[in-house]
Computed example of a mutant assay.
Amino acid sequence: MSREAGAGVMRSFVADTLALVVFFTIVGALNEHFVAGMTWAEVARSRTIGAPLMVLTARPYGIWRDWLVDRLAPPVPRALADALALLLFQVPIYVAILWVSGATATGLLQGAAGFAVLMMVVGRPYGVWLDFVRARFGLAAGGMRPMTLGD
């Protein structure tokens, strides 16, 4: 791999990681405090625990999102494609976290359902944010390859 290609890979990793950590730290904190009723101290602990997981999954999610959106849009509206990408990637991870944490079957289903709704709501806003952050790093927005006659 050339030095230039390596720099692009690193920029992509940093951009996707920064976008995910910033966005979901804010969204998660607001959800945990105002919806789940956690204290700010509990929110801080939760976000601290979640940060390493966000770092590990940010770039794989960015790659997944670009791949899925390339295949869905158009004819699927971009807002729905972004929501589906987030839903299909993040909900299984969240379910695994709940399961490992000892959630009951009912808690697992309720938690997964609530999280699924949240992912559908924030899917497009996160997609817009991700593209914005990527642009700040000199990267093209993902999931938008040009149409060709072969498509």
Score class of each variant (00 low, 15 high):
A5D: 13
G6K: 08
V9Q: 12
S12L: 14
F13Y: 15
D16V: 05
L20Q: 11
V21R: 08
V21K: 12
F23P: 03
I26V: 15
V27C: 03
V27T: 06
V27S: 09
G28F: 02
N31W: 15
E32G: 15
H33V: 14
W40M: 05
A41E: 14
V43Y: 02
V43I: 10
R47M: 15
G50N: 09
P52K: 05
L53N: 09
P60R: 08
P60V: 04
W64V: 10
D66V: 07
L80V: 15
A81K: 00
A83I: 01
L84C: 04
L84P: 00
L86P: 00
L87V: 00
A96Y: 05
G102M: 00
T104F: 04
T104K: 07
T106P: 01
G114D: 02
F115M: 08
L118A: 13
L118V: 11
L118H: 04
M119T: 13
P125H: 07
Y126D: 00
Y126L: 02
W129E: 01
V133L: 11
R136F: 02
F137D: 06
G138Y: 06
G138W: 06
A140Q: 14
A141E: 12
G143H: 05
M144G: 14
R145V: 13
P146K: 12
M147S: 13
L149E: 13
L149S: 11
